[in-house]
């Protein structure tokens, strides 16, 4: 039987370190989309809380913590990241395994917002977008999910097929911010 080797879509491209900022791939573990059926929102949230200890988040928010996080990803949908979801939740919500559909990047360092400001139209000002906040928007021309995981760190989920383009976009923005900093 052929033995298949798991390979990262950004093998050899990350980690990147430019001017004190680091871009790494985070391996968040399983990703499951949870979309509660109409009228089942509260039941799904309660069942999820009992299963993994975190309820369904409200728009632009996340619940739980690393290893069992629930991130809002759209109208009537959230993704459970890092923990397996028991199939019993399927009585309240549509579940789909999305683990292999996404690549998750972590960008960390002083001035991380300056880099992301070149890539996304989101307002990531620390007074507006706080740790635990999540949003769906664009990174370049790619749809993405943004999650603030620490005061100086964001995770960005991109469709896995666009992983190399995303690294390219990140690298250009990181170099541009570094070049601007070197001028002043």
């Amino acid at each position: 039987m052929v033995k298949l080797l798991a390979k990262s879509p950004v093998e050899g491209l990350v980690p990147l370190e430019i001017n004190g900022l680091t871009l790494t791939e985070s391996g968040p573990g399983p990703i499951t989309s949870v979309a509660p059926y109409a009228g089942q929102e509260a039941a799904a949230s309660g069942a999820l809380k009992a299963l993994i200890g975190a309820e369904m988040p409200s728009p632009n928010r996340s619940t739980g913590r690393e290893g069992a996080r629930v991130v809002w990803t759209g109208a009537g949908q959230a993704m459970v990241i890092g923990a397996d979801v028991d199939p019993s939740l399927a009585q309240h919500a549509a579940l789909t395994d999305q683990s292999d559909a996404w690549i998750t990047f972590k960008l960390q360092g002083q001035g991380v917002e300056d880099v992301l400001a070149r890539l996304t139209p989101l307002d990531l000002n620390p007074g507006v977008f706080k740790t635990g906040h999540a949003a769906r928007s664009q990174l370049g021309h790619m749809n993405a999910v943004f999650l603030k995981v620490a005061a100086d760190a964001f995770e960005s989920m991109i469709f896995r097929s666009m992983a190399r383009t995303a690294v390219h976009e990140f690298e250009i923005a990181m170099k541009a911010v570094a070049a601007r900093a070197a001028l002043s």
């Binding site: 728009p59 139209p121 664009q138």
Partner: peptide, 11 residues
């Protein structure tokens, strides 16, 4: 109404 104030390129 869900996401808040957003740039028109998202729409």
């Amino acid at each position: 109404p869900l996401c808040g104030d957003r740039d028109s390129r998202e729409f």
